[in-house]
Design a protein around this nucleic acid. Structure first.
Lengths: 228, 228
DNA sequence: TAACTACCTAGCCAAACGGCTAGGTAGGAG
DNA sequence: CTCCTACCTAGCCGTTTGGCTAGGTAGTTA
């Protein structure tokens, strides 16, 4: 029942040349309008829906059944939420390909997104106007599209983590966020209703996963990965 | 000679109602196209030039003499460079008002930008489509435009630093960048050819300026302010 | 059932850090 | 010349940290 919604929405497939139905998910109006303008220069492409929140994405995909969903993983304060949505879409709506259009380039996020079913990953600041249209077409055909610098990152990411990127648990993220605020382990312990030992435990695990052993770098990497 | 360039570029001022000549500086094509689309819905507004690098901004402003320059301060790897450009434009081309359109909201950057002559400061993720056009018009009239959340930030910023934001010295930035990489004070000392005491000295000063006393938070704030 | 994950706790030790006081130099501005 | 800024150095002391070993529970999956 998951993708039944698609069958009753073949509207828009009426032009002589099949139209690529695109949906855009981004919190930023300017970006949404920009993507729409760029894509609609190409004949045969139409932006059929937009979404600005995580909740709205699933509804809109279900309702409009786009061929390609262009999405920014960061639609709120939680990029991991974006990753989950990405996985959910590709699981439940195999007819909709996901093209991630990210603000930043973080190895961890790139690897996770692809592992969860994204067919393409482009970086906003690097993408050229014509690349966007080509990327959408390629992704629609099931071809994997990786932007400038993304490819090598994937290679490294898959190599270093042997196929499965370790990702931070909720608790670890909580601790890191507290560290970023300048709290000491003791203060964090009080705030989280656990002991200082536990705080140190989570930090050690997080540090190992992010491949560092210094809290300053830990915070920096987590921030760079869009985790804060 | 600075703004002589304006007089020979009155093209576009031919409509009955005076046209607002806008220039957009942003590294991101999608954003540039988006802004153009949104503004050109309003009659009486035209995007007459675009720039994607710091160098190109000054040339383009000199050549086209826009009424309003919409710019992202972060066009490369150095936001402070954007601040300098902002100051230079407002100094040399008083006929061109600067409206900063930022990705992130950092108290330090906001305060600095306004101190250096920006007439408005909006945040990409918060701005609504109609606000952009209104903002441009208001800025053109010399009215200060502050986006959601920016106002209170300015108040706090001006209050805490009494009119002059303390800014980090080169050396302090070097040390912070090293800390962000996870280096210890000793390692940083070796790398910078100074003693550990000196490293600690710079860190203490930087920490005071950024109003913290923990290196993890120091790195986080510096990163949030686009200083790394 | 066993195995696994996420979570929590304890204590030890050496290293690193923060906070402080008290000096120094070189270069530019008034 | 004096003041000021940015830069550099020294040492002390208490706190925080990183790194470690060695346990525990609850919930899920195989």
């Amino acid at each position: 029942m998951a993708n039944d919604g698609r069958s009753d929405v073949p509207l828009g497939r009426r032009s002589p040349m099949a139209t690529t139905r695109v949906m855009v998910a981004d919190r930023n109006v300017i970006t949404r309008v920009g993507i729409r303008s760029i894509l609609e220069r190409n004949a045969g492409m139409a932006v059929v829906a937009e979404a600005t929140t995580y909740e709205a994405i699933l509804d809109a995909v279900d309702e409009h059944g786009p061929d390609v969903l262009i999405m920014d993983l960061d639609l709120g304060d939680d990029t991991t939420r974006g990753l989950k949505i990405c996985e959910e879409i590709t699981d439940r709506y195999p007819g909709t390909k996901v093209l991630v259009l990210a603000n930043t380039l973080s190895e961890m996020i790139v690897v996770e997104a692809l592992r969860r079913g994204a067919t393409g990953y482009l970086c906003k600041d690097d993408v050229k106007a014509d690349e966007l249209g080509k990327g959408v077409k390629a992704v629609q055909d099931g071809e994997t599209v990786l932007g400038k610098g993304v490819g090598s990152m994937v290679a490294r990411g898959l190599g270093s983590s042997r196929g499965q990127a370790e990702h931070l648990t909720d608790r670890e993220l909580d601790v890191i966020r507290a560290v970023a605020k300048g709290l000491s382990n003791k203060q964090i312990a009080v705030q989280m209703y656990v002991t200082e030992s536990t705080v140190k435990f989570h930090l050690q695990n997080a540090a190992r996963k992010l491949n560092t052993h210094r809290r300053a770098e830990l915070v920096h990497r987590a921030a760079a990965a869009g985790l804060l």
